[in-house]
Write a protein that binds this DNA or RNA. Structure first.
Length: 459
RNA sequence: GUCCCGUUCGUCUAGUCAGGCCUAGGACACAGGGUUUUCAUCCCUGCAACAGGGGUUCGAAUCCCCUACGGGACGCCA
């Protein structure tokens, strides 16, 4: 028995859709699972829309997700070329076979595939016209996910466009035959196209590959109806990169879109996914995109991220938001990151969470303003604590705590009475890292100054 | 409109193929409580689903049929 060969056939026209990424992942998983080959084939027959940049971007995204390929545009292989734009000779050769078999004809400058069967014309309500149809024999695929699916193709279709470029269905089938593809895992949107493909396999007297049609990824119902489009939030992998999501989390999330492991474990590394992946466990029904789940997974991975990787990603996120540059004190930065480590839920939120460590221009949280500051006696709390902090000679966590404790003893109020107000004064919000270490790190001069600034704002 | 595919908590899903172990399990989200003298984490509890109707059967989420609803295809896009 020959070994498994699967392919991923993206068209490099811009950004990578989440469904495209999932197709890549599932094909990759199946290849690695079976010890087969994962082939990358570039669908660049539409010349105007393809650029080198888009291709580079595509390869970058695949690598970011942790996917590698055995044959492809940059790695080569025995079945090349791996750009469809360079496979013209092969397409011509296969077109000749169809010509010789009398299965093609020309119309309006394009080459059509001729179906076999009785011809008749009929009014078609979709095309709103009288069109020619063919009474063909139904064709059946045994889909690895859906079982037997039978359908009849009833209209001739274009093989080569009038501008000379070969069309999708034709190149798709020719490439799968000539590259020895054994399994085709693709989106359900191709299920209806499969009858066209099967007709071509028949005409070429070739054995069709095994098909598996994955469910569509649908919009969050709160957002709208239908399949997720590239305009929807969360639809593009680039968006996750820009938002500093972890690739492990993204991979985990897209794997769970339409697939789930038998043992019910949800947080899975790509290796663990690989151990559990089975085509038959892929869901039939469309999967709805849930941004909250994506965020949660990202959060889980952040918690277990090794410290050096955490620091790298954190620095990137801070640099991207221009809170820090290369002049930043690396020891101070390290301490800040250490302090925020267990508090933040995403790198995306880190800049907002920690801005006040790096700049006096930090935003004031409206809710905190209402809840903490616009409250009777709030400014009195600052008036009480400010001189005591000012007077401290030893600016250590315990010394700071003592200052609060003393005040607490004298007034009978808990230290809790001052904490939120001071936190608000120095950070503009009511949540954040551990309070006392935060003050210590910020430094006496800055803490006292911000308290006074806050007080000055009322007068 | 025609054809194809689908339908379990708000969402992702387990269970369906081999009907009884399902008073339907987990996760996210949401609500309430607890731990934490801050903040977050964390822990506990709760909410919440077999689309509807007919069969078959001692017994159906599970098998069959119909209806409804959702999705996809119907391009000289891929």
């Amino acid at each position: 028995m020959s070994s498994v060969r699967v392919r991923f056939e993206p068209s490099p026209t811009g950004s990578v859709h989440i469904g495209t990424a999932r197709a890549a992942l599932f094909n990759w998983l199946y290849a690695r699972k079976t010890g087969g080959s994962f082939i990358l084939r570039i669908a660049d027959t539409d010349k105007e829309r393809n650029t080198q940049d888009a291709l580079d971007e595509l390869l970058r995204v695949l690598r970011w997700l942790g996917l590698d390929w055995d044959e492809g545009p940059d790695t080569g292989g025995d079945f090349g070329p791996y750009f469809q734009s360079q496979r013209g000779d092969i397409y011509n050769e296969y077109l000749k076979k169809l010509e010789d078999a009398g299965r093609v004809y020309e119309k309006d400058g394009a080459v059509f595939f001729k179906l076999e069967g009785e011809r008749y014309t009929e009014y078609d309500s979709y095309h709103k016209a009288e069109i020619e149809k063919v009474r063909t024999e139904p064709v059946t695929i045994d889909d690895l996910i859906r079982g037997k699916v039978t359908r009849r193709e009833e209209r001739d279709f274009v093989l080569v466009r009038s501008n000379g470029d070969p069309g999708f269905h034709f190149v798709n089938v020719v490439d799968d035959i000539s590259m020895g593809i054994t399994h085709v895992l693709r989106g359900e949107d191709h299920l209806s196209n499969t009858s066209k493909h099967l007709e071509l396999y028949k005409a070429f007297k070739a054995t069709p590959p095994n098909f598996a049609h994955m469910p569509m990824i649908l919009k969050d119902p709160k957002v709208g109806k239908g399949k997720m489009s590239k305009r929807d939030k969360g639809a593009l992998i680039e968006e996750y990169q820009q938002r500093h999501f972890l690739p492990e989390a993204v991979v985990n999330f897209i794997a769970l879109l339409g697939w789930s492991p038998k043992d019910g474990k949800e947080v899975l590394s790509i290796k663990e996914i690989l151990e559990r992946f089975e085509i038959k466990d892929i869901q039939k029904a469309g999967a709805r995109f849930d941004e909250k789940k994506m965020s949660h997974l990202n959060f889980v991975y952040m918690k277990i991220l090794p410290i050096n990787e955490y620091e790298n990603s954190a620095k990137k996120a801070l640099a991207a938001s221009e809170l820090i540059d290369e002049n930043v004190d690396s020891e101070y930065l390290r301490a800040v990151l250490e302090l925020c480590r267990d508090k933040i839920d995403s790198f995306e939120n880190l800049p907002g969470f920690s801005a006040y460590f790096f700049s006096d221009e930090f935003p004031v949280n409206e809710k905190a303003l209402k809840k903490v500051w616009n409250r009777k006696g709030a400014s009195d709390r600052l008036v009480e604590i400010a001189p005591r902090l000012q007077a401290l000679e030893d600016w250590s966590e315990s010394a700071i705590e003592n200052a609060f404790l003393q005040l607490s003893n004298e007034t009978g109020d808990k230290p809790f009475a001052w904490y939120p107000v001071v936190r608000f004064a120095v950070s503009g919000t009511n949540s954040g890292p551990d309070f006392l270490p935060m003050l210590e790190l910020l430094g006496k001069e800055l803490v006292v100054r911000r308290i006074n600034d806050r007080l000055a704002s009322v007068n």
